[in-house]
Design a protein around this nucleic acid. Structure first.
Length: 844
RNA sequence: GCCCGAGUGGCGGAAUGGCAGACGCACCGCACUCAAAAUGCGGCGGGUAAAACCGUGUGGGUUCGAGUCCCACCUCGGGCACCA
């Protein structure tokens, strides 16, 4: 490990005993951290005026989960968000930059079981720890807006929103096979299953049929997809792509197949979804999902035992096994036949687990010649294969490789001779005309399973009454508070919610009929809590609703959202969904919550994510102790572009500390008085200063924070040189340069910047000093260097006026001795002139 | 398998199609010092005595000019994965 805390490093960056005796002459990060933290607290620097006097801007970091103290990942993410917040403050915007905690969740519950405590104890203790660390870390937050999703004042409104969703039919309950984590003893949403395992604990997920609550996010699939257009260019391309893939829009057709009567089973109609209606004539069998209700409905009595045995076999498989594409296809014949609506052919109906119950209609027409999965199945069970699209490739029946490319339809009656695209269009026309099908769009996205069989979450505000059914808890009775008498063992997972054990809590009168009824005992997925917190921040104490409508109009949408890419499809998709529903409820104008998104990279150590098992963790607190807050923050920013990972083994917080000390010393060297007129100062240094600000402005606006740090280093170097061997410490241009350094550093290294500001004779806070204005006249040089190339290689440099004409520059370049020598008297074939920077001469 | 993204010194990384390697780390040298640390100054892609010349994963192409644009490939990283 590089840069481990050593005695040597400590001496480099902290006070030497001999220097410490002369107070104020050596850079001591401990001293300045202790000095400024209370001053800022007093000033309340980052509370927005919120009075409309200045343009409002909202910047938000994904709020933390309170699992112990802050770690290196928080340090990076919040350093990034802080650059934006502090930059916008310097630019004069009225900036909202709040902080809160996503404080419901399973770890608190597990900790409570282990310690025989209530989850709230662990949660709020950790929040206090993190809050103190954030203050030490000097994030530019408005602390007065702090919120916690586990506060009843917060989850009251989460419940209120649930009730609105329920009223609109967007929250509903259904019995359905769901993902089940055997370790956490709770269900999981699709988004929380990664490679067939629980996203949180890694336990292989199993399926279980349960009556669960869902949000109808699928109803918003189209809008979630279409509105991504607004986000293009402001969200990372790959996040948009991931969401697009996750939503998985696919265009095709619904086609009805009639299942012929068999024994005492009557005729039935079954619809399939297909993206390839052009291949209808190539269908040679029909498959229904083995675990769908449909399979049991269709199966003949003779085949029922075989189906049930197969279903048992499927249930025994883990999700990982089931999803393996290596696996041989399995299935059973149902004893039934489906009629192809196009050609009247009878197709055997099979039940198999390669068809998914919850995608499309849970049934497919199998076209083995042009679908690899169907072909694999056909070969396993010796079913016929008929090619209907000539792609010029070998017969799939012979090769075992389905052909999926372009081609010409064959063996397809009236579709013969058509291309794939024309065939698809024509086939849809035919089935639509016959009333046996229609064009349709299908989505991969499933409804969001939101109920959890755990304690530490927002209770679902529903009462179950034998007479009235599901009855929402009336708004005026919200919040439905969690009972506080459950703790320790009583919270241990048992497959049903621990809330069921709190009898006094569960048993209530039905709000509708007054009869005996029970509360719903499930709690909400914590992603529900975080799907609207950015709205609560605009008016965290509002009691008339989840948020003050005027405040939402004033602040939303979030201008810059900052957080890890791990939430690309979880939190970000859910938050977009909530925003759209809340918009449709008429409560907000915005249709998208976050107009710009920055995904900061991870902090690694030695090429790997930090983890306990690898023993490569770096403790944030230790880094702050050894190098100081500013050095750690600066290192995070300087190490790489914001979206790239930072490998802590490759970077140098001690180098950052050295730079900060160097910058800080400049402030002590300035010999002019505050307010000295820079116009009278050294022109050369002024030019450097103003160019630096101009460049930094552009770089900040385009998110290249690491390069801004490099620019500030260049300015520090130039100023040092000016003091030691140029204009001298008393030149007002030096003051201008150092003040500029202080303002620039206020974005990355707030303590150092504030102390410099004070040493320069100013009142706090440098955070509100204002971004320096650029004098355009100082950006123009008297002379510039023009490069003279021959055949693309630099052969000479000319010092010329920046407004030299093309002709003049051409003549000067051609007259250059170096060029003359290379041309050797010959006329150049071509001369490209880009005044005043470049001439390229192409010899004959 | 499908879909993205990225490959630049010893390292992290700069570079609107126009001087590749800004800035920093590490390393080397010098000044200051009895000495060290700290600080300041200088050097630092390969190659050469110095030049020439060669250099942005590989091979092609477009262009007066390519790290940058296009095509193919290699490697690494990420996402999805029986989604009909």
């Amino acid at each position: 490990m590089h840069d481990v805390p050593t005695v040597k490093v400590k001496q480099h960056v902290s006070t030497q005993p001999s220097e410490a005796t002369q107070s104020g002459t050596a850079y001591d990060f401990r001293e300045i951290e202790a000095k400024w933290a209370p001053v800022w607290e007093e000033l309340g620097v980052f509370t927005p005026a919120d009075d409309g006097s200045r343009e409002r801007r909202y910047v938000l970091d994904m709020f933390p989960y309170p699992s112990g103290d802050l770690h290196m990942g928080h340090a990076e993410a919040f350093a990034m968000g802080d650059v934006v917040s502090r930059y916008w403050n310097q630019c004069g915007y009225d900036v909202l930059h709040p902080i809160g905690w996503d404080s419901f969740g399973l770890p608190a519950e597990n900790a409570a079981i282990k310690r025989d405590a209530h989850p709230a104890e662990w949660t709020y203790k950790n929040i206090d720890t993190q809050a103190a660390s954030f203050k030490r870390y000097a994030i530019s937050a408005d602390w007065s807006r702090r919120l916690h999703t586990s506060d009843p004042e917060y989850y009251r409104w989460t419940q209120w929103l649930f009730s609105r969703f329920y009223e609109k039919g967007l929250a509903y309950r259904k019995n359905h096979p769901v993902n089940w984590c055997p370790k956490d003893q709770t269900v999981l949403a699709n988004e929380q299953v990664v490679d067939g395992a629980c996203e949180r604990c890694g336990t292989p997920v199993t399926k279980k049929s349960l009556n669960q609550w869902y949000f109808k996010i699928t109803e918003y699939a189209d809008r979630l997809l279409d509105d991504m257009e607004q986000l293009k260019g402001h969200w990372p391309e790959r996040v948009l792509l991931m969401q697009k893939n996750w939503i998985g829009r696919s265009e095709g057709a619904h086609v009805d197949f009639v299942i012929a009567a068999e024994g005492d089973k009557p005729e039935a109609k079954t619809t399939v979804f297909t993206t390839r209606p052009d291949t209808l004539h190539g269908a040679t069998f029909f498959v229904v999902a083995a675990d769908a209700d449909l399979a049991g409905e269709l199966v003949t009595d003779a085949q029922r035992p075989a189906l049930e045995a197969y279903q048992e076999q499927v249930k025994a498989l883990s999700e990982i096994e089931r999803q393996s594409t290596e696996r041989e296809k399995t299935g059973v014949f149902t004893g039934r036949y489906a009629t192809n609506p196009l050609n009247g052919e009878k197709l055997p109906v099979w039940a198999a687990d390669y068809v998914l119950a919850d995608y499309g209609t849970g049934a497919i027409m199998a076209v083995p010649a042009h679908d690899q999965r169907d072909l694999d199945f056909a070969r396993t069970f010796d079913l016929p294969v008929r090619a209907v699209l000539d792609t010029g490739e070998e017969d799939p029946a012979a090769t075992g490789t389905a052909t999926t490319g372009e081609g010409t339809l064959i063996n397809s009656g009236e579709l013969d001779g058509l291309s794939k695209a024309d065939g698809i269009a024509r086939a849809i026309e035919i089935v639509e005309a016959a009333g046996t099908g229609e064009h349709t769009v299908n989505f991969r996205l499933r409804d969001w399973l939101l109920s959890r069989q755990r304690f530490w979450g927002t209770p679902i505000p529903i009462i179950h009454c034998a007479a009235c059914g599901e009855v929402p808890v009336p708004d005026e009775q919200l919040p439905v508070r969690l009972p506080d008498n459950l703790r320790g063992e009583q919270l241990s997972p048992k497959g049903t919610s621990p809330l069921a054990a709190a009898e006094e809590w569960v048993n209530v009168d039905c709000p509708r009929c007054g009869g005996a009824a029970q509360r719903d005992t499930d709690t909400m997925d914590t992603f529900v809590d975080s799907s609207w917190y950015f709205l609560r921040f605009v008016s965290p104490d509002y009691t008339e609703g989840p948020f003050d409508p005027q405040a939402v109009r004033d602040w939303m949408p979030v201008g810059q959202y900052v957080g890890g890419v791990e939430h690309a499809i979880l939190h970000l998709l859910y938050a977009r969904f909530f925003t759209k529903v809340i918009h449709d409820l008429g409560l907000i104008d915005a249709t998208e919550p976050f107009s710009a998104l920055l995904n900061q990279g991870q902090v690694l150590n030695g090429g790997r994510a930090m983890s306990k098992s690898l023993g490569n963790g770096v403790d944030l607190g230790e880094q702050l102790d050894v190098f100081g807050v500013d050095a750690v923050r600066l290192t995070m920013i300087f190490a790489s572009p914001p979206e790239d990972d930072v490998d802590w083994a490759d970077v140098s917080p001690s180098g950052s500390a050295k730079f900060l000390a160097r910058a800080w010393r400049l402030a002590g060297d300035v010999a002019s008085r505050p307010g000295a007129d820079p116009a009278a100062g050294d022109a050369q240094l002024r030019s450097v200063t103003h160019k630096t600000v101009a460049e930094a402005t552009e770089l900040l606006d385009s998110g290249k924070f690491n390069v801004v740090v490099a620019k500030s280093m260049e300015l520090v170097n130039a100023t040092r040189k000016a003091i030691d061997s140029g204009a001298g410490a008393a030149d007002p241009a030096v003051r201008e340069a150092v003040e500029t350094v202080a303002v620039m550093l206020s974005l990355f290294a707030p303590y150092t910047a504030e102390d410099m500001w004070a040493r320069l004779g100013h009142e706090p806070s440098v955070a509100k000093a204002g971004w320096p204005a650029v004098d355009p006249a100082l950006l123009v040089d008297d002379t510039v260097v023009a490069v003279v190339q021959v055949k693309g290689k630099v052969r000479d440099r000319l010092e010329v006026s920046p407004d030299i004409s093309e002709d003049e520059l051409r003549a000067t370049a051609l007259a250059s001795p170096a060029v003359q020598k290379l041309l050797d008297g010959a006329e150049p074939r071509k001369v490209i002139v880009r005044a005043p920077k470049l001439v390229n001469i192409v010899p004959a």
